[in-house]
Amino acid sequence: MKEFKYVITDPVGVHARPAGVIVNVAKTFACKVMVEKAGKAPADAKRIFGLMGLGIKSGEEVTVRCDGADEDAAILKLEETFKENL
């Protein structure tokens, strides 16, 4: 299992557009991709409603975990995607 932590800088938080980008990226990997925010149940990053349902706001920290065969590639790509979009 691999993970990274990231603090959201986008002023609107995890809104529809970047959530869509993350779901699309997560779906390209076979491993499980979960996003966790303190005080909420972890959400599947391949599901847009789950991800948006976390209500992640600007300045909040999330933990992204990848677990599965291609977790190394997935964690790199997702970290890049978070940085670029959020």
């Binding site: 529809a16 869509g20 599947d44 847009i48 409603f49 789950g50």
Partner: peptide
Amino acid sequence: AEIFSIHMMMVDDLDF
């Protein structure tokens, strides 16, 4: 146009 690609993703969503 982006809103419609988000809608497509929602239609396809597994939670839904």
